[in-house]
């Protein structure tokens, strides 16, 4: 019976981690769709995407708790479970940040001039790529550790791109003489909060890089 129980635990947690990482990938795409909808002034669609990301985040939270419970109650991967839990929690925090930015837009409803649309989309794209690479690196950590470093490297690349996009967007905002300082500061904060997501994805990747070395056979 003990053998069957170990098998069940293993397959259960494998699929839960896969589902969790799927949600992390999805949340980036939902975020992008939400930004697009807002920039097109399609507020109904934006609200739908906001509800979707709230649901996704809630689902991810439930999975995270279940993963934590399985790891500790069934004493799986005793040498790495602390590391795995930290990585899962950090990934969950990234999902929370996507939701946070969308809520910020929902609450503040900033007036985004069309000249900033391309820059904002480009920044969002870099952020999503960084999170997607972090998700892939985490998948590799579980399934094929030799591939993890390649994805970690890509996270760093997209984070730098996000920084560049953020800087040029902020410059454009403050160089526009038609905008009042209040709007400039509001947009700057929005840009920074989006850019922060890529920074956190890079932090996750840095931590993962250490765990990859630790687990290297």
């Amino acid at each position: 019976m003990a053998f069957i129980s170990i098998f069940k635990n293993r397959t259960g947690i494998e699929s839960e981690i896969d589902s969790f990482l799927n949600l992390a990938s999805e949340s980036g795409l939902i975020f992008m769709q939400g930004i697009d909808a807002y920039l097109l002034n399609n507020l109904d669609s934006f609200s739908e995407h906001l509800s979707h990301i709230v649901e996704t985040e809630k689902e991810a939270d439930t999975l995270r708790r279940s993963i934590e419970d399985l790891l500790y109650r069934k004493t799986l991967i005793p040498e790495s479970r602390g590391d795995v839990l930290e990585l899962i929690e950090r990934m969950d925090a990234l999902l929370g940040r996507f939701k946070g930015v969308m809520f910020r837009i929902e609450i503040e409803r900033p007036n985004i001039n069309s000249q900033f649309h391309t820059g904002l989309k480009s920044l969002s794209n870099c952020v999503i790529e960084a999170v997607e690479s972090a998700t892939l690196s985490l998948r590799s950590y579980f399934k094929d550790i030799s591939q993890a470093s390649d994805h970690i490297h890509k996270v760093a690349f997209w984070e730098t791109e996000a920084d560049k996009a953020s800087t040029s967007l902020q410059k454009a905002i403050f160089n526009n003489n038609e905008l009042g300082l209040d709007l400039k500061m509001q947009l700057r904060d929005l840009v920074r909060s989006i850019d922060k997501i890529a920074d956190h994805a890079e932090d996750l990747a840095d931590t993962l890089a250490i765990y990859v070395i630790k687990r290297s056979l």
């Binding site: 170990i6 098998f7 293993r10 494998e14 799986l76 991967i77 579980f142 399934k143 056979l217």
Partner: peptide, 18 residues
């Protein structure tokens, strides 16, 4: 062997336990 066969972390844990 583990690197070549790309064994999942949890599968490896299970195999090691057995």
């Amino acid at each position: 062997f583990i690197l070549k066969r790309k064994i999942h972390m949890f599968r490896l844990d299970e195999m090691t336990r057995y």
